[in-house]
Every structure is written in C-alpha cells, then in structure tokens.
Simulated assay, not measured.
Amino acid sequence: MSEQAPDDQRPPIAAAVITRDGAVLLVRRRVKEGSLSWQFPAGEVEVGETPEKAAAREASEETGIQVANGKSLGERVHPNTGRTMIYVAFDSVEGQASVVDDDELDSFAWVRHSELTSYVPYPFFAPVQEHLDTALRG
C-alpha cells in the first residue's frame, strides 16, 4: 500500500459551480469529507487536464449532465479539508441531473439562493458566494 502524498503535493480539486433556472447543483457524498456533506460536484484534476475540463468531467461522471463555458472563480486551500480547490462556474447545462456515481454520491439537489444555508451552513469562498448571489438572484 502506498502512502498518500501530503495535501500540498496532491492534485488540486476542481469544483463545478453549476447554475440553471435560478438554482445551483449540489451533491451529497456517501462519505463525508470532514464536516462537508453537501457540496459541488468535484474531483481531482488529472495530469494534462485543465481545471475547467476536470470540473466538467466530474459533473458528467457524478451527475450525468454536460456543462460548457466554464469560467474560473478562483482557488484556495479549503479550510476544512486542506486541499487546494479551484472553483469553476458553468451556466450552460444539458441533460437532467441524476446520481450516476452511486458509489460516491447519495443524492443531488438544485438549490435556490434562499435555501443555501439549509444545505451548506458555513460561508462559501467569497468569489463563489458573489457568483451565486448574482446568478441565483438574477
């Protein structure tokens, strides 16, 4: 069994911030990451992949939807997980979301702005919150 690389040597995580019709897509993982339960579709950026492509791939693999026109919202080291996170906004969405990766996901929800704190009770990364404030209140 190999040792896991320290967080600063592990690939960054690309998160897909997907909005449609006044709601944002959140997924609930079967295994919590720290205190995280509901979060954006996300996964590691693979070798040779841009964060935008990684976030789009993860959205497809986890929920079956296709996204386009990704725009980076910024990156940070996540305060709960210690992982480098890159947030990518998408507003072009095709297909209907479902739980495709049922080994990893338990559920998904399209969440309106007024419901966000019911799903994610801690503050979002400021650029993500600003994007959601604009996109969901549209």
Rank of each mutant, 00 (worst) to 15 (best):
V77K: 04
A15G: 12
Y87A: 12
V17I: 13
D101W: 01
A54F: 03
T117F: 05
E61M: 05
Q66S: 09
A23D: 01
E75I: 06
G82P: 04
Q66E: 12
P51Y: 01
E104P: 05
T63S: 10
S37I: 11
I65D: 04
E130N: 13
F40E: 10
E104C: 14
P12R: 13
W110E: 03
A89V: 02
V17T: 03
G95I: 09
F90L: 10
V111S: 04
D91V: 01
T19M: 08
T81D: 09
R83N: 08
F40K: 12
D101T: 08
A54R: 05
G82Y: 13
D106P: 02
D7G: 00
E3T: 02
P51I: 12
S92K: 15
A97P: 07
V31N: 14
E46A: 10
S37F: 10
D101Y: 11
R83H: 07
T63G: 04
T63K: 06
A97Q: 11
D7Q: 05
F40C: 14
P127I: 04
A14M: 08
G34P: 01
S98H: 15
V128K: 07
S60C: 05
Q66A: 13
N69V: 03
E52G: 01
F40Y: 14
R28K: 15
Q66D: 07
V24G: 01
E61F: 04
S2V: 15
H78A: 01
E130Q: 13
V99R: 14
R57E: 07
A68M: 15
Q96I: 15
A16K: 04
E44Y: 09
W110K: 12
F90W: 08
D133T: 13
M85S: 10
T63N: 06
